[in-house]
């Protein structure tokens, strides 16, 4: 049983790492800003969440699991928000220009 649980956690973390690698390759290979944002924000959040689940399975401790859940929440929320802000700036650059000229 414990061997199975450990293997499950390891598999989760490996899957999460694979997501992050795909995100990195996507940022490197994709042609423009929007498709890069697309691959980064989604694969990033999924990767971190999977690694956190795998780590939670390994530690089996409520306090540590809560911290991991908090990390996942922060990565998800900030990833989505910054992705939105960068894409918004791409379509509507007047905001950034106003700041630049300030």
């Amino acid at each position: 049983m414990t061997a199975f649980v450990e293997a499950l956690g390891l598999a989760m973390m490996l899957a999460g790492t694979a997501f992050l690698v795909v995100a990195a390759i996507g940022v490197w290979r994709l042609p423009d800003l929007l498709s890069r944002l697309h691959v980064l924000t989604k694969a990033d959040t999924a990767g971190v969440a999977l690694i956190a689940i795998g780590a939670a399975i390994h530690v089996q401790d409520v306090a540590a699991t809560l911290s991991l859940a908090l990390c996942t929440l922060l990565v998800a929320v900030s990833g989505a928000t910054t992705g939105h802000l960068i894409a918004r700036d791409q379509f509507n650059p007047s905001v950034a220009d106003a700041e630049e000229g300030a």
Partner: peptide, 9 residues
């Protein structure tokens, strides 16, 4: 720094 409203999110 001049801040501008940053949208609904």
């Amino acid at each position: 720094p001049r801040t501008a409203p940053l949208g609904p999110l």
